[in-house]
Design a protein around this nucleic acid. Structure first.
Lengths: 207, 207
DNA sequence: GCAAACTAGCTGAACGCTCAGCTAGTTGTC
DNA sequence: GACAACTAGCTGAGCGTTCAGCTAGTTTGC
């Protein structure tokens, strides 16, 4: 194994920076901390990435690329299934992604406390894709696909974004597999209830 | 009007600090900025509040007190009404509060990206109160009141927390009165649908 | 095959700057 | 004149960035 390997070092710095930026935010993280966490000198992160901001941009880009890959897989998995199954499959992929990739959630959350400019393109694509996936289900339910996307994302996102605040107060542990399974079931049931029950005959809720 | 008025100056500093902490976060805000925004010298905030952290704590306490007052009013307004009307009234108060008080939302959101310790007591009380308010409606719907609270808070919270990220991507402007009215109607409909439609056969209803 | 020339990886020190907090002092109010 | 309100100046620590320099590895010339 090479003692000096630029790509490996860059990777280590990116990973360390991602964890620290996610946990402490941009302002709360110093290049010194990043260097220490990556096992390099204080000045090495700047050597490879020019500036703290450029490093942050690359961290974000990598996280977003991971997310898009995961969601594309979830979308592909639901192809050629019934409308609400396709939607449920996409929601499952979203729940899995958010619960697995804590850094993604934290970083996007932090960005959305700013102006959100840096993640806007990513969310634009996500929204477009999700609307496409949910449109059949939304038509069956007689509601706007945008509304359906918003509700599903909100219900998937919120518990994990507030796992240390409201969720403990409600006695819930949103990262436990038991919760995540129930969460997926709950969202799928909601979709079913809307498309079967909400559209025409509200009295009967299947499943 | 007195030139020197400690209480008034303290209030101005608190207000300035609240806006800046909400917009830029704790690490991103300096005592200098707070002083400038409040129209006092660099060192005056520290004179009244001892330290930056103590000032932050008082900002948070004031915001939380405002929120609890508003929610208590919303709860009182729904008293002696039908279960889902009481719940809808509470949700309305929540939506109004979150849309009106942007600083509350931002500050709690920032706290929940940390360990959430500072807002845990507040959210504990909120959760307890909300569970109490929602229990009749949840029983009518045959679902867990905690789940109902979580879903209602998530659906109320998320759009405003992501008003610059996902919402524009969906073509929505969550601070516009039109959106807020539709939001309230939507949530009330959801409550009705659950308690009326789902109430009869609890074993088939999503938990 | 083997130096010499060159490059990329990485570092420690130093720069200019900003920060929060402290202290000594001044100014307004009763 | 006593006390609260307020401020300017100072300080040590920490920040991001720059940079000359060292070293390990690769390429070139013979």
């Amino acid at each position: 194994m090479a003692v000096r390997d630029g790509e490996r070092t860059k990777g280590a710095i990116l990973t360390a920076a991602e964890d620290l930026f996610a946990r402490q935010g941009f302002d709360g993280t110093s290049m010194q901390q990043i260097g220490e966490a990556a096992g390099v000198a204080r000045s090495t992160p700047a050597y490879f990435f020019r500036s703290k901001e450029a490093l942050y941009d690359e961290v974000l880009a990598r996280v977003v690329a991971r997310a898009e890959e995961a969601l594309a897989a979830g979308r592909h998995q639901g192809e050629e299934r019934s409308p609400d199954d396709a939607a449920a499959s996409y929601v499952n992929a979203l729940v899995d992604l958010l619960s697995r990739d804590q850094n993604l959630l934290c970083l996007v959350q932090r960005e959305s406390l700013g102006d959100g400019n840096r993640v806007a393109p990513f969310l634009g694509r996500l929204a477009e894709e999700a609307v496409e996936v949910f449109t059949p289900a939304a038509e069956a339910a007689g509601i706007s696909p945008h509304r359906l996307v918003l509700d599903m994302v909100a219900l998937s996102w919120y518990p994990l974004a507030h796992e240390h605040t409201l969720l403990p107060a409600l006695g819930m542990k949103p990262r436990k597999p038991a919760f995540l399974d129930e969460q997926k079931r709950h969202l799928a049931d909601l979709l079913h209830a809307l498309t079967r029950g909400g559209g025409r005959s509200p009295e009967h809720v299947p499943r």
